[in-house]
């Protein structure tokens, strides 16, 4: 094949996919704000996405906080700056690691689950069946997932922040023999309100991305078990990459000039 044709083909395919995603996104968002609302579906997604992700997100946050304290210590102790460790831990967790680690873990857990479920529903004609039962599948399946995921991720991340900071505290106090009261007061000293809120805004965006990628790939999957497998992989990979890219962009917006 002509290499130029290959490049052109790939580029056009990319544009088409972007267009499809844009169309899908705008329609899905509009369904989130128009009646009917399927409250029981939304509630169920809250439990699935939020509650059942707690163990995974909590463990991730705990160990991230712990390793962060150890690594900062090995660096900062070289120039007698151990007292900065509590600040470094709390800022890194709330501004960056809490939302990103939680986002990536939830992308693996929930993005994959959504894509596999919707993909299976697509190939077994359950999505067509919804249409024939006077129920808009985008409204019934996608809107509840988008709403739940976007709203529940900030809550998850808030919990992850607390557990992560606690992980750092555990390592510093029990392993590195810091004074517990000092550690806590130093954690608060330089922490600003917007360090936490910016992390929570990120979490909401990541939640939206995760559900959107799961839904988009699952809803449009084709061709049996293999198609569902491909949809699941794509959902996790695209969600993870978009989380990392949007994380940089959001950080740029929130902390411009700081």
């Amino acid at each position: 094949m002509n290499p130029l044709a290959l490049i052109g083909h790939t580029f056009l395919e990319f544009l088409a996919a972007t267009g499809r995603l844009g169309h899908f996104t705008s329609r899905s968002i509009s369904h989130c704000f128009r009646r009917p609302f399927y409250w029981s579906q939304i509630g169920r997604q809250f439990v699935d996405i939020g509650y059942f992700s707690l163990p995974v997100v909590g463990l991730t946050a705990l160990f991230t906080g712990m390793v962060l304290a150890l690594q900062s210590y090995s660096g900062f102790s070289r120039f007698d700056a151990e007292s900065a460790i509590p600040t470094v831990v709390v800022l890194s967790i709330t501004r960056e690691l809490g939302p990103v680690m939680a986002g990536l873990m939830v992308a693996g857990r929930i993005g994959a689950a959504i894509a596999a479920e919707l993909g299976t529903m697509r190939v077994t004609e359950q999505i067509d069946a919804l249409t024939t039962l006077s129920t808009n599948p985008q409204k019934y399946l996608i809107a509840p997932r988008l709403i739940a995921s976007t709203l529940v991720m900030p809550l998850l991340v808030l919990i992850a922040d607390i557990i992560g900071v606690f992980g750092g505290f555990l390592v510093c106090v029990y392993r590195l023999k810091f004074n517990a009261a000092n550690y806590i007061s130093q954690s608060w000293q330089y922490l600003e309100f917007r360090d936490v809120t910016s992390g929570l805004w990120k979490a909401a965006v990541f939640g939206f991305i995760i559900a959107l990628m799961g839904c988009f790939n699952g809803f449009n999957s084709k061709g049996g078990a293999q198609g569902v497998g491909a949809a699941t992989t794509n959902a996790v990979v695209t969600a993870s990459i978009l989380i990392l890219v949007s994380n940089y962009l959001l950080t740029g917006i929130f902390f411009s000039g700081k």
Partner: peptide, 19 residues
């Protein structure tokens, strides 16, 4: 479209029940 679909019932080949 809602009104149109309300007239229909369909039995799918693989049953397509919501599991």
């Amino acid at each position: 479209k809602d009104k149109h679909l309300r007239k229909f019932g369909m039995l799918f080949q693989g049953s397509a029940l919501f599991d």
